[in-house]
Simulated scan of single mutants.
Amino acid sequence: MTRIQSRIWTPIDFEQDGKFSDCLRLPLSTTKSAYGWIPIPIVSIKNGSGPTAVLIAGNHGDEYEGQLALMKIARELRPEDVRGRVIIIPSLNFPAVRAGLRVSPLDDGNLNRSFPGKALGTPTEMIAHYISDFMLPMADIAVDLHSGGFSLDYVQCALVRPGRTEDETDKLVELIHVFGAPVSFISSGDGGGGATTLNAVARELGVLCITTELGGGATLSKTGLRIAEDGVKRLLKHFGITPAIDVAESTGSELMEIPGRDFFLYADDDGIFEPSAEVGDQVEEGQYAGRLHSFDNPIQKPQELYFPRSGQVACRRYPSLTTRGDCLFNLMRPRAAS
């Protein structure tokens, strides 16, 4: 079968030494622009041979810490600082970034639920395919920076999937400690995107990949921004790509786990959510978690909610307005010794 090439293109030559800033061109034919394309900003910094780091943010458009961290790094790095290659895409889902949305306004596509994508698919599927088919195969290390976005407030953390082998898992755990977020997870991704995320495709390709959650509420956490910037710089230094970069040493990371779906608390009805706990709080199984107020019946007694397990709050719903099926809390606990 003939391999279908991506329809996305760029004038950047990723094999050329130097620093180049341009964009990926995502073709989009509309009534107002029959042969048009949408820009996705990209920076390539290369100096001789060496490892390649692919740094990505803006996979979801309403998550900002990673976007700003990568913009700052893109401005700061010079070719003479690099031994190898750094490719930076700070606003991968550019249509969603421009609109301030988690999903694309072009096709309602959730990019981090669209991997490995389709070469001839929707705009969101085409972006996922380009990353899966072209960018990740070039990478020795991939970083995909996320936050909680509009709907969640999240503990600042790093996440990896278990490797395909024990050796790969050991290397990923090492990267967690190099990155240096306060807490980190080794997660199968079953509570989120499963096999449809960038991280999942990277694993299948054998590319070491680390992702994050750095805040939430569709606003900017200064702490999350600092963690993102310092963590990425430490990874680049660890791989020998920017050996002289100025960044503080990591103090390590506390390994946590979310063992299963019973560590999630979901809304069983629509209403206004009144939480009783904040991100980072330690809670006990059966402890009062908050209440859900009916906006249809003002005199109806609110539904009281209770934590299903003991643990620490990893994230909670940020907007008060809630629909049945929304995640209200996600709990974590220290990772069990293997």
Rank of each mutant, 00 (worst) to 15 (best):
G231M: 03
V279Y: 00
K222T: 12
D281T: 04
G271L: 06
G240A: 00
Q287M: 15
D268F: 01
G286L: 11
Q282M: 04
T219I: 12
R291F: 11
P275S: 09
G252S: 03
E278F: 03
F263D: 07
G240R: 13
V279C: 01
E278S: 11
E254T: 15
L255T: 07
F295E: 07
P243N: 05
G290A: 10
A218W: 08
A267K: 09
D296S: 14
D296Q: 15
G290N: 03
E274D: 15
E229H: 08
L225G: 10
S294K: 08
A277N: 11
A289N: 00
D281Y: 05
G216A: 09
T223Q: 12
S253M: 04
L220E: 07
K233T: 11
F273T: 01
L235W: 06
Y266N: 09
Q287L: 13
D281R: 04
L255I: 12
E249I: 10
A267H: 06
D246F: 07
F295H: 11
T242K: 04
E274I: 14
E257W: 10
E254C: 11
F264N: 11
H293M: 04
L265P: 02
I245E: 06
A218F: 10
T223W: 05
V283A: 07
S221G: 14
A267W: 08
D262G: 00
I241Y: 06
A218K: 04
I245L: 01
I258N: 05
A218C: 12
E278Y: 06
A228L: 05
K222F: 13
T242L: 00
A244V: 08
Y266H: 07
G217S: 15
V247P: 15
H238C: 09
G217K: 09
V247Y: 06
V283F: 02
I241R: 02
H293A: 10
L225Y: 13
S250Y: 11
D268G: 14
F295A: 06
M256L: 08
G286S: 09
Y266F: 13
L235H: 02
E274W: 12
S250L: 03
